[in-house]
Amino acid sequence: MAASFIKILKRKLNSAFYVALRWVNYYPYYDYLHGRGQKINLTPEYEIELTAEEKAFLKLCAASYNYFESDYALGHRQKELSLYKLQDVTFFSHTGVIMINQKLIVESGLSVDRLTRSKAFRDFTLMLPSRLKKGIYTTIQHSHWADNNISLWFIDSLPRAYILANTVQEPVTLLMWKGAHAYQKHTLEFLLKDYPHIKIKYISKHHKIRISNFYLPSFVTASFSGYLPPDVSNWLREKVWQSYAIKRDNPKQRIYISRSKARFRRVLNETDLYPVLKKFGFKIVWPEDLDYGQQIQLFFDAEAIISPHGAGLTNILFAEKCKVVEFHPAKIVKGRYMLLCKGLGFDYTPIIGSKGDEIEDFTIPVTEVENWLTSQYNLIPS
């Protein structure tokens, strides 16, 4: 009872504090770049060709998010890849967002939605500004979103290094949160090892830094999308494979990614699925039981992957060539990994389960999975 009262009181105090800080204009509003600085275009935007089935699936995804009028519902557009050369910016080290003329810049936070839910837009932390007087600075950081989420790291953050590697010629310092996880530091450092003019500087999350010259690489992906242009994904995949010394002659295997140890979005009738999967030669794995190098090797070796929706599916980026089946709860259907497969040229099949409960745990139609397996592997189960 006391704990519940304290929680309610804390929530009300926080709310009042936010209101008071808004009154004194503590929080900056947001704006777009609108032609500020010098813009270098690396690639133009283009429409992705989608099949009728893919368009229907994206519309289903959009309907579950009430985004019928968006590009996400009607198709998919790969935006241009660009580098912005800017002057006199303020860098927020806890988010990677920048501010110009007291306005947070949307392009530095991926989207208005993410920016306004980020700590840069709504934060109690008092960060006193310092100044880096010499040199040019940049970032690929997208915190707090990607702090320990492999999907947001490998799809939203790390591909921005491709833009830096292909546009920046002069010495530049890349600012990165020093609390990044080992796999994040490892992959970032390996990707940039052939570009010695791009130095990484790890800093704490308590700086609001005024910077005279700042290079802002655009995000490669759009909101809700996992699509990566082939040139970007091939560059990223090859370097990650090299960094983990992936063995390329292992026999191929079929794997099922279980979320039974996760806190949410678990398949409630997963045990009913196990006999079917094993009959078709699938191995059941829990990625959290493996170190990251082992996960990369596992996915590289996979010729087929079946999994409920979850961040672990990001690792299909490091499969050599595979078929992917993704389970979705009917209430919230997400197209991120369908679009990732689209960019990689992988066959993708969604299977929609029950609506799911309050933590998105759901059941899947085992017969539909069995029918897909039979159609793919010419095996008639006994």
Rank of each mutant, 00 (worst) to 15 (best):
L313V: 12
I209H: 02
Q184S: 13
N14E: 11
D123L: 12
S243M: 10
E320M: 11
M99R: 05
S4W: 12
I198M: 02
G37P: 09
K185I: 09
T367I: 08
F362H: 14
K342A: 14
V232R: 09
K199W: 06
M99Y: 00
L216M: 12
G345S: 01
H94A: 13
Y377S: 00
N148K: 04
S82C: 05
K355W: 03
K279S: 15
Y195I: 03
S382W: 09
A56F: 08
T51P: 01
V112H: 07
S93Y: 00
A2V: 15
S218W: 01
R11C: 07
V285N: 11
Q253F: 00
S258T: 15
I284K: 14
Y30N: 06
Y274I: 15
P171A: 10
V285Y: 05
N269V: 03
A262L: 05
L33H: 06
G281N: 07
S15W: 14
M176V: 15
S70Q: 02
K355A: 14
K208M: 13
K10T: 08
P350A: 09
I211D: 00
E288H: 12
F264P: 00
D31Q: 06
D113M: 10
L164A: 01
A319D: 00
T314L: 11
Q297K: 02
L192W: 11
R22T: 01
K279Q: 14
S64H: 12
A304T: 04
Y244P: 07
P28Q: 08
P44R: 06
I364L: 11
V267L: 15
P365F: 11
G35P: 13
I105D: 03
G96I: 10
I364A: 11
Y348G: 09
L174K: 05
I352D: 05
S143R: 13
P251Y: 07
Y67T: 04
T95C: 13
Y67Q: 09
V106G: 05
K79P: 04
L191H: 04
L228F: 10
K355H: 08
L216Q: 11
F300I: 08
F224I: 05
G281T: 05
I380W: 09
R210H: 08
W286A: 15
E238Q: 14
N269Q: 02
D147H: 12
T314F: 03
I198E: 01
Q169D: 01
P350N: 12
F121Y: 15
A302I: 11
S111L: 02
F280T: 04
Y137A: 09
Y65K: 13
F5D: 03
G35T: 07
H94V: 12
Q242G: 08
I136S: 04
W145N: 12
C322L: 02
L115N: 05
F318A: 11
I296A: 11
R36A: 14
L344T: 09
E238Y: 05
N213H: 13
